[in-house]
Design a binder for these strands. Structure first.
Lengths: 230, 230
DNA sequence: TCAAAAGTGTTAACCATACACCCATGC
DNA sequence: GCATGGGTGTATGGTTAACACTTTTGA
């Protein structure tokens, strides 16, 4: 059979991923320095062309691993950008993802098409290739929106964390201060944190309790129509 | 310069749109009957291949107009599906949109690649081509989520509507009954409806007041960080 | 003993919910 | 005059928001 699909020119399809990491007091984005044209030497999001018969999310993970060494992290589809003109090589559609990672628990290294990989504070980004600044803006907006009604923020923290770290996370993402007592009341009231009965080590002040997120319980509650809200 | 992009085989790229319409008492989806293989004669979402250098949303609008006659409606990107195997013709990525329209104010007609276009109640859909059932499920979920914190529901109503119509809309989408007095208190309290000082005509009972949504005011409030919530 | 962050309760304002009857209109 | 949907207020309980001091620990 002679399918009409083959008669038409096709756009190229890429995947790009905005990976957020949380440093002590600011949100960072993982960028790579491009080894090849176009925009050789510019900073850009990790990403690249999808391969034949490769699922989209796999392509995003593959490119991320190839160019930055990151693997097994939380990612989720963000939006698809396809304005003609966004890539000087011609019509190119980019299916974009955003990811969250605990900065301190993962090593990054530039490789493959990336001569370098580095974390940049979201409010101090360099000039970026393509429309990647727009993609990052959109990812930030999504993160801000989503963190309030889905417990994705935990992906940005180490497995074991203190309530103050969690509060700081929300303050950084939402860009507004939260009241300590009210925050603790609310979070603990949801009963989704497991108190590990451990304390911080080697801090120059009273050591805080460590908690971890109870994912199983959350998944159970979800089915019964819980609504998580900060 | 010899860009590497040209060395690789490319997937095909399509756009598909899930258009919701509101009938008196149920939510409907606009489907077309496919004229060509694959799935000739099956019901499917309106959509098709994007053209060279065509922006994604334009492609979605063009296909929708070609196949169903609908134009100038609210649409928004939903998700991009790209599993290999979702299209028997080979690797095909579909950038999907969802749209909202007032059923009674728009005529539809099947044309172009569609031998027919018809509204189907969301809970009585026929067998669908490709993975279009999955796409519709996702669109429904998005609609349910979004309608609560963004006033997109108004797109489903005529310009002038009654509070009861608006309430019914939310009840249908959210699939739960709402209290009349509380609903009115809340909606009118947001101060986003303009009372037109007009009444329904030709109804077999007391005629209701007509309102319209104050989009300008909403846009103003948005900038100052309003949160609309039902 | 000082600095730095952890941890802890109460009150008042606001918001969400539950609930039932009269009104206007056309047939 | 009856059937149909339009329109209206109040009381209660729960949730959010504001607010300051004591405790622990290491340096």
């Amino acid at each position: 059979m002679n399918f009409s699909v083959y008669e038409y020119p096709r756009p190229a399809v890429t995947v790009d991923t905005v990976v957020f990491g949380l440093d002590d007091d600011c949100l960072k984005v993982l960028l790579i320095k491009r080894r090849h044209a176009p925009f050789a030497g510019s900073w850009a999001l990790p990403g690249g062309f999808i391969e034949e018969n490769e699922p989209l999310e796999c392509a995003a993970r593959r490119e991320l691993a190839e160019e930055t060494g990151l693997s097994d992290i939380f990612i989720e589809q963000l939006y698809t950008f396809g304005d003609p003109g966004r890539d000087p090589r011609g019509h190119t559609i980019s299916v974009c993802y955003y990811g969250l990672v605990n900065l301190s628990e993962h090593e990054i290294r530039g490789a493959s098409d990336a001569s370098e990989a580095r974390w940049f504070a979201v409010n101090a980004l360099p000039e970026l290739a393509f429309d990647h600044d727009e993609i990052i803006r959109m990812a930030l907006q999504r993160l801000k929106g989503k963190v309030r009604y889905q417990p994705i923020g935990f992906e940005l923290l180490p497995q074991k964390f203190t309530l103050s770290q969690l509060q700081r996370l929300y303050e950084i993402i939402l860009e507004k201060p939260l009241d300590k007592r009210n925050f603790r009341k609310k979070i603990l009231g949801m009963d989704l944190l497991i108190d590990l009965n451990e304390r911080q080590q080697d801090v120059a002040h009273r050591a805080a309790r460590l908690y971890r997120f109870d994912e199983e319980k959350y998944n159970l509650l979800i089915k019964n129509g819980l609504n998580f809200e900060i």
